[in-house]
Nucleic acid binder design. Sequence first.
RNA 1: GCGCUCAUAGCUCAAUUGGAUAGAGUGCCUGACUACGGAUCAGGAGGUUAUGGGUUCGACUCCUAUUGGGCGCGCCA
Length: 498
Amino acid sequence: MIKQQQKTASIRGFFFLLLLLFKSKITHLCTGIIQTMFNNRPELEKDDFYSLINTIIAKGRDYGNTTIGNGQKVNIEFVSANPTGYLHIGHARGGAYGDALANIMIKSGFNVHKEFYVNDGGNQINKLGKSIEARYLELLGEENVLPEDGYHGKEIIQVAQNIIDASGDAYKEDGFEHFKEYGLEFLLDRLKGHLVEYRIEFDEWFRERTIYQGDLQETVKQIKDNGFTYESEGATWFKTSEFFDEKDRVMIKSDGGYTYIVPDIAYHKNKFERGYEVLIDVLGADHHGYMDRLRSAMEMIGKDSTKLEFQILQMVRVYQDGKEVKMSKRSGKAIGLKDLIEEVGVDPIRYFFAARALSSQMDLDLDLALRKSNENPVYYAQYAHARICSVLRLGKEQGIEPTKVEVYDYLNEKASGLLTLLSTYPRVIDECATKRIPHKLTNFIQELSSEFHSYYNAEKFLTENKTETNEKLRLIKAIKIVLNDALKLIGVSAPEKM
RNA sequence: GCGCUCAUAGCUCAAUUGGAUAGAGUGCCUGACUACGGAUCAGGAGGUUAUGGGUUCGACUCCUAUUGGGCGCGCCA
């Protein structure tokens, strides 16, 4: 059956290659042939898949590791939420993407550094201080109004309460600096904690403030010295339109302060100077206008802007009770990552976001997500893993420990389908890494789980025939290894029991 | 108004340099061995890929116009 399909397929493939030939695209011919072959997942030679099982079991989680990244130094910056409130669902998406991508790229041989940029220097920290101050005075019974552009989240009230618990009304008169610093550190600490719970750990928390010692002035000087600035309307502008931008931007405001982009330029300059060959920024769609500016600025300071890569994530729209829930931190109505984890669990959330291309705009019905969380395909994959564990466990109880085999006699067509799928794993990993599309891996997970479940239902594993049992257990052990690895890469657990 | 971006089965989404009959899940319908875990399996129905043109041997994919969402648009970050 499989062979039959392949045969007709390759005949069609042949015609289409002939057509290419007529167009004299000889170069494409070879890749065409190769692609056609790979895409069809040709049956492995018997000898190959015997050794594949043994290879996978011998290598364990190292199976699928490749060297395509060639040790290239990559910096992935993601989440980078302002420490002015807790993380919301949009950060959950960026986080799931960035972390999965990083893990996959590491597996493909890239030298990856995961970084979180902490905006602790800008005006929003002042707003944070003011917001805390307002809540603080409010809690002390003073007449006070929270600024309209302040942060309205519940967590701000908690920060204020903490300060009162610790030192009463000691900061009633002059507490702004304390509110700022305490709030920043408190929120940052919580934010780290929530991310750890979400199974994301960064290699570096880069503080914006460290830029202020040197890099910032140097960046400004460099742009000026290179002749990319001019004065107008009392402000200093820089000529981003000479590169990729549609118009020039203000660099130094008429009040003498830098605009928000200046520290960012300095930060990226810093990243370049730390020797990264690829800089990946995972940004929300609301920052897409940013790319051209930043790339232009990189050119002005002599950096290769093509090394700066942006992955833009489309917004997640959240609906609850049939109404859209806005995710602004200012409004304080955001659906918190923390709440989401508590209600739904980390696995479904990580899988859900990892499974979707970054470019897809998605509507998330929260009621549905909470109520019907069992519909998440993550359970399907986890169940496959748990089932394998269960069979292996039962086998062990019966004293059966799979041992290495050179020649397999009891593996049928379904088994060979599974093995060909397993053999594609390294290529899937490479594709995910080089195209920055971790969601491709969830497709693989789904396919592997599906083929396993089908095989499971059709076969008996613990049989009277010891040789047969042994071979089948070897096979599912190999599946387990790959399934486990793939799930771990996207931050999802692979439970032994469910 | 200008720019960017998105639109695929009832719903949520795949199809990633333009390639084979557009695939999964969910929902709906019909079935499955007392089952090594039924959170599973086997099968069925469900599509003018938003719409109209164009390029190509070939278009979900590229170009163009239109419609409808989202986001952004010089001294906020």
